Amino acid sequence: MSDLVLHITGARPNFPKAAPVIRALSAVGVNQRLVHTGQHYDDKMSAVFFRQLGLPRPDYDLGVGSGSHGRQTAALLTALEDLFVELQPAFAVVYGDVNSTLAAALVAAKLGVRLAHVEAGLRSFDMTMPEEVNRLVTDRLSDVLFATSPDAVAHLGNEGVDPGKIHLVGNPMIDTLLANLENFDAEAARTTHDLTGSYVVATLHRPGNVDDSADAQALVKTLHSVADQVQIILPLHPRGRASLEEAGLLAHPRLRVVDPLGYVEFLGLVRGADAVVTDSGGVQEETTMLGVPCLTLRPNTERPVTISHGTNRLVTREELPAVVAGVLATGRATTWTVPPLWDGQAGPRIAKILRDELMSEASAR
């Protein structure tokens, strides 16, 4: 077994989480390599993040592409197994809850490679979400679990995870946000998108909102009701685009659809918004730090800390127009709370623990 730490990334949410960990491990001299599975593969969903976040060029790009959950996971398992056998890493580090994370966890477990999960312990308790399945399996197989919030630590404890494996380290995605904060230019975003006055940003792609045609139609009707009150700009994820457009998404003159944006451009747009309507997990965290009202169009969230210590609120489609009206009338708060340890130092905390684990393992050999 080598002393190599192998980072497995594959989708847009992984990259802001991985960047500060890779940077911090590099600062303490740890031997590491970066794998990009290619689960997300076009420029706006992948390559732009490497450019903007200072991520090193991936050492391995597996190019698995898209597909159904089963087909994609099968391709990931095959490609990652070959790579793990070749490299014999001491640790595999996985991020979040995407299919690349699940596949890497399974491969590591089968081959006896130690596994570290960044963002462990998040739970929605909704088993209809593919991400929830991925979280549960990954955490069960992990040797080191890095939690972003106290509720995540509690979930892991309730599931019987050895407390010695669990580390509350804060949120590396917030490290990335704070490191780039001065680049989030709300005025530039307004100019680029020709926005005047109040506006709302929407990001929507979850199966429960876009897969079924009846759900897509109901969502579009709700968004049009919101657009009656305020401009909406919607950077539209490839997932669900066809169903939403077929449901008439583009019919309202004050609802503007744009292609997915780069990290800096998107958060510049969010920073200047009156509110964000989303079903994304990461956006709930980013708005919490930026103080932007976040209306999460889901019945649950695996990030309840963004409600108790942030600006997030769960809403239904039926409630959304009235809630938006209330937010517009109230305006944005000038002060707000943020979760503990969301201070920009999660990456160094993770790096120290991983380095200590490597040193302990080397001493045991």
Rank of each mutant, 00 (worst) to 15 (best):
A322K: 14
S198L: 07
A186T: 04
E319P: 06
R23Q: 11
E119M: 05
A227E: 07
N300M: 09
A108V: 03
D185M: 00
M359Y: 05
D211V: 12
G197C: 04
T73E: 12
V210G: 10
V264I: 11
P150D: 12
V323N: 12
L177Y: 00
G326Q: 15
A104L: 11
R271W: 03
S149E: 15
A154Q: 14
I307S: 11
V137L: 10
A247T: 10
V258T: 09
Y95L: 02
G157A: 15
L295C: 03
L111G: 10
L255C: 09
A247R: 10
P56G: 01
A90Q: 11
K44Y: 06
T296G: 13
V48W: 00
A47E: 02
K17H: 03
V327S: 08
V257H: 09
E131D: 09
V200G: 00
M173G: 10
A189W: 01
V264S: 02
E357P: 06
V292I: 13
V283H: 05
L87Y: 12
A116M: 09
E182R: 04
D3H: 15
M129E: 12
N183F: 04
S2N: 15
T138K: 06
I233S: 00
D194N: 07
R12V: 03
S225P: 01
P172F: 06
G63P: 02
A242M: 15
A189T: 01
F50T: 03
S213T: 15
H40Y: 09
A24I: 07
A362Q: 15
R239W: 05
V169N: 09
G282E: 00
A79E: 11
L115C: 06
K165N: 02
G38Q: 11
S46F: 07
T196A: 10
A27H: 15
M289I: 15
R303S: 02
V315M: 05
